[in-house]
């Protein structure tokens, strides 16, 4: 079995801005093993989110290569990259990004419905919400939930397919410290239990310290 979840080689990302090329990432090479927890930290504008997007195959690098689950992403189109993620990758975002018109339960069922998972989706999603302590909130809509509760739903949604990799982008950025700590405790507990590879982008050093590996981005390069 391939033990490497993600591997990058000399990743460069430039975007055109005000008539000239702005270099966001300057040759990032890293390897993330299966089951490993990795933190990527850096200041605002250091290229953290861009790197996360490239690792997940949401975007393609200007040069360099990314291998996800051993599969090179360059040469794959958007749909082929999406197919690679389907059911194997989970996401947690800073602003939760729950679908407003869906209940907590329906939000969690979404990734199941997209994929080819077997089993009763309602039961699986209910169990996932129970695991994050929201068994009583199944029928609530996002605007009826607090920020912490919304991020719990997002966690349940991310873990419900038992993904191999979880990408988390500033998961506590919109929460107060106490709630943030609860969410982080939950996140690591689930990651450990399900043996998920965790890629966590944050500017919180104490949070980064809880991960096995810690990369620091300074002006688009690993420090």
């Amino acid at each position: 079995m391939n033990n490497t979840a993600i591997q990058t080689d000399n990743l460069v990302k430039t975007i055109p801005q005000a008539g000239r090329e702005l270099q966001i990432l300057r040759g990032v090479s890293l390897t993330i093993d299966s089951g490993e927890s990795v933190a990527i930290t850096g200041l605002s504008g250091s290229g953290k989110s861009t790197l996360l997007g490239l690792l997940a195959g949401l975007d393609l690098p200007t040069s360099g290569s990314v291998k996800l689950f051993g599969q090179a992403l360059d040469g794959l189109d958007e749909d082929q990259r999406a197919a690679l993620r389907l059911g194997r990758v989970g996401f947690v975002f800073q602003s939760f990004h729950l679908l407003e018109n869906l209940t907590a339960l329906e939000n969690v069922m979404l990734p199941l419905e997209l994929g080819t998972q077997t089993g009763d989706y309602t039961v699986l999603a209910t169990q996932a919400l129970q695991r994050v302590g929201l068994a009583e909130r199944l029928g609530h809509f996002p605007n009826q939930l607090s920020g912490g509760e919304q991020q719990r739903v997002a966690l349940a949604r991310a873990f419900v397919t038992r993904p191999q990799i979880l990408f988390a982008d500033e998961p506590t950025g919109n929460l107060d410290r106490a709630t943030g700590n609860e969410i982080i405790a939950l996140l690591f507990a689930l990651q450990e239990k399900l043996q998920t590879t965790l890629v966590l982008v944050t500017h919180d050093e104490t949070l980064a310290a809880r991960c096995q590996t810690h990369y620091r981005l300074v002006e688009g390069a690993l420090a």
């Binding site: 749909d79 999406a82 996401f91």
Partner: peptide, 19 residues
Amino acid sequence: RRELPAVAVLKAMGMSRRQ
């Protein structure tokens, strides 16, 4: 405008353009 974030999230989860 309302569906925009939903589609972006779903695509990140692995939804194809065809879907």
